[in-house]
Design a protein around this nucleic acid. Structure first.
Lengths: 201, 201
DNA sequence: CATCAAATTAGACAGTGTTCAATTAAAAAT
DNA sequence: ATTTTTAATTGAACACTGTCTAATTTGATG
């Protein structure tokens, strides 16, 4: 039996998320198993229900971890790019695609998991998910050279949806049936067309 | 025991797909059960494996059925719209969203199901999935007033990815795109901006 | 050292997908 | 008509799953 003093509550939570995330990356959402995740962490299944309250909440925590990694990957990709110009947007979109492909199982799990309505999302998890939007927001504001506004934030969500659509169809293979050799390039092209239209107005 | 002469092979296949599709619409992908689908059709589980070879192939058949319905809904929505003009594209996108919302479980199942690489997709199923692309292709060609071409077909796939992205994030509510009151309207706006850019070139 | 509350677990339960020998029904051959 | 053969259909077995609860272990408190 795992000893209560082996890990503090926070450590235990982090331990379970770490192993859960690794298992998700390894197997994908369809073959994920809470039992196996707990086993690898050295605990029994019940512990997941103790710590997270439900399997649903555990999956939310795992996916939030993916969001954090993803956002970090985007920031990292932007670190060496000159602070103005279209190149930053191109790099951003390509980093978006790269993370999704390099971590396909974990990335898809974000969208595979439909959390139940009654599962409350902790502020921490919510923030992890917002981080990504924040990055795009910042870059688009810079590119447009205008102060942030509700209209721009609305546009940013729409741009994210556009890029997401390309990436999702690509990762799941729907796009390969469509014979598109460069989905990321297409996404960039669409983003720039839309932004150009916004600039003219 | 169900009698072999109750249904011809084709009828049996259709019967299983019908009940499977209904169950998918009712429960969604996560709670779908092959056992239950067979039960409702009046057969035992094994029959699904006899007829389709695998659960994977059964799910492909169910999702192809959804594609057929979806394409039919799009065509129906266009039937009364004047044969030229931007209105047709707007109606098309809105019908796309409407079908997804009205049949959320079945629609999401299309993207929830990641069929295994070894599952061969029958020509019939492949065609059902292509029908949708064909409709958009036709409408975009008409709108642009140019003959069809590989470049246009490539653009059309990109446009579909854009609209899909908006629709998917809307239906799953997984993004704070939930604060977006009119995702379909946003998708239409983006499509028209992209098409305008194409026209200028 | 005894008490007590909290953490952890094992086990039961009702499901699942998958496989396959046994059964049954229809067709073919006698 | 009967028997034989072929093929569809089944039910049970297997190894899993998520979920819950009673029992156990643990560490701290009096």
């Amino acid at each position: 039996m795992a000893r209560r003093s082996d890990h503090s509550p926070k450590e235990l939570r982090a331990l379970l998320v770490r192993h859960g995330h690794a298992l998700m990356a390894e197997r994908g959402f369809a073959r994920f198993s809470a039992r196996e995740a707990a086993r690898r962490a050295g605990y029994a299944v019940g512990t997941i229900y103790n710590v997270f309250g439900s399997l649903d909440a555990f999956l939310v925590a795992i996916n939030s971890q993916t969001f954090l990694e993803w956002a970090a990957a985007l920031e990292y990709s932007l670190a060496d790019v000159e602070p103005a110009g279209t190149a930053r947007l191109e790099v951003l979109v390509h980093a978006y695609f790269d993370y999704a492909r390099s971590n396909a199982n974990a990335w898809m799990a974000i969208y595979d998991h439909r959390h139940e309505a009654e599962t409350v999302i902790a502020a921490e998890d919510h923030d992890a998910r917002e981080a990504l939007t924040g990055i795009v927001d910042r870059e688009v504001v810079t590119w447009l050279g205008r102060p942030d506004s509700p209209a721009i934030r609305r546009l940013v969500r729409s741009l994210i949806a556009m890029v997401h659509g390309h990436c999702a169809l690509w990762i799941t293979g729907s796009f390969s049936l469509m014979n598109e050799p460069d989905p990321a390039g297409q996404a960039v092209a669409r983003v720039l067309e839309v932004l150009a239209a916004q600039r003219l107005r």
